[in-house]
Amino acid sequence: MTGQQASTTGRAALLALLAVVPIVAVVGVSLTAAGLQSVGLMPFIGPPQLSANAWTSETGELIRSSVTSVYIAAVSTVLSLVVGFMLAAYVLAMPRMGRIVETLSAATIPIPHVIGAGAIGLLLSDSGFLERLLGMPDAFPALVSGPWFVAVIAEYAWKESAFVALVVLGSISRSVGDLCDAAATLGASAGQRIVRVVLPLAVPSLAVSAAIVFVYTLGSYEAAWLLGPTSPKPLPVRAVRLFTSVDLAARAQAMVTALVSVAVSAAVIIAAILVLRRHRSLR
């Protein structure tokens, strides 16, 4: 490595450090405070007293909320990846029409989730647009506030699939064209080019997108609160309701719920990093 390269690397590391240190400090202080509050060492009322009561008092409800949140996030992530990859493949295969699809997809990203949740609610509710269009006043399924969180998952999948598509396009659009042309000259069909050329190239961006979408949907509050049933409560809904409860003692349980959400998110991020490292080692 030359002196100029070392200097450039040092500047890049310094700039990254200046950006990372404040984030790590804020997150570290927040998690430390939440941990102390969850075990009674930083109570909202009363003297500090070490206790695991917030962790053990409603273990069953906490497990139900965790399973519900993981279910919503996992299904939403899978649907987002499938739809997003299909959108990206279509844009790459059909450049002219693909530009329109890409523009429409990009236009959905700035829309806040609370507005998207309202639109999905108007579309899928018992007296919504889809029920009126199909003419099923008595047989329309309970998609909003139903037991399977269908409307919640639909909102996340709709919003995040556009994000996945743009990430995939941004990462492989420059290199995939020549490789697909080479595969076509060797007799590969369109489906074979997508499966054997586009998909392997898109694996890193799909892994990163999956981690981002999963973590975001796991901690997102608006859609689950507006479109989901009252029970079981996903982790973010449970945390907010406990924190805003008139019972100040319940805030310790809110911190426990938030910490569980952080732990699940951290596990998913680590898994995504391992997938990326394994993919690089196999190349």
Rank of each mutant, 00 (worst) to 15 (best):
A12H: 11
A13H: 13
L14W: 15
V20I: 13
V24H: 06
A25Y: 14
V27Q: 03
V27E: 00
L31C: 11
A33G: 11
L36V: 05
S38N: 06
V39F: 12
I45M: 05
G46W: 05
Q49V: 10
A54C: 02
E58V: 10
E58Y: 13
G60C: 01
G60T: 04
I63P: 13
I63K: 08
V70Y: 03
A73C: 08
T77E: 10
T77L: 07
V78P: 02
V78D: 10
V82N: 03
V82G: 02
F85Y: 07
L87M: 14
L87R: 06
A89V: 06
A89H: 07
Y90T: 12
R96F: 06
R99W: 11
I100Q: 09
V101P: 04
T103I: 10
L104S: 09
S105I: 14
A106T: 15
A106C: 05
A106W: 13
A107K: 03
T108N: 02
I109H: 05
I111W: 01
I115T: 10
G118V: 14
G118C: 07
I120E: 06
D126T: 15
F129H: 08
F129T: 12
F129I: 15
L133A: 15
L133H: 12
G135W: 07
M136D: 05
M136C: 04
M136Q: 07
P137H: 07
P137S: 02
P141R: 01
P141F: 11
V144M: 00
G146C: 06
G146H: 08
W148T: 15
V150N: 08
A151I: 09
A151R: 06
W158Y: 11
K159S: 12
S161G: 00
A162Y: 02
F163N: 02
V164H: 03
A165H: 00
L166G: 01
I172V: 11
S173I: 07
G177T: 14
G177C: 14
D178P: 12
A183M: 06
A183R: 04
G187M: 02
G187F: 03
A188G: 00
A190C: 05
R193W: 10
R193E: 08
R193Y: 04
I194F: 04
I194S: 05
V195C: 10
R196Q: 01
R196E: 05
V197P: 01
P204V: 03
S205M: 04
L206V: 03
A207K: 06
V208Y: 01
V208T: 02
S209V: 06
A210V: 03
A210Q: 00
A211G: 02
F214M: 00
F214R: 01
Y216Q: 09
L218F: 07
E222V: 10
W225N: 08
W225Q: 12
L226H: 01
G228E: 04
T230Q: 13
S231N: 10
L235S: 04
V237Y: 08
V237F: 09
R238C: 10
V240Y: 14
V240R: 11
R241P: 05
V246Y: 05
L248P: 09
A252M: 04
Q253W: 08
M255H: 01
V256N: 00
T257C: 08
L259Q: 03
L259Y: 06
L259R: 03
V260E: 12
S261T: 03
S261F: 00
S261D: 05
A271F: 13
V275Y: 09
R277Y: 02
H279S: 13
L282T: 13
R283A: 15
R283L: 14
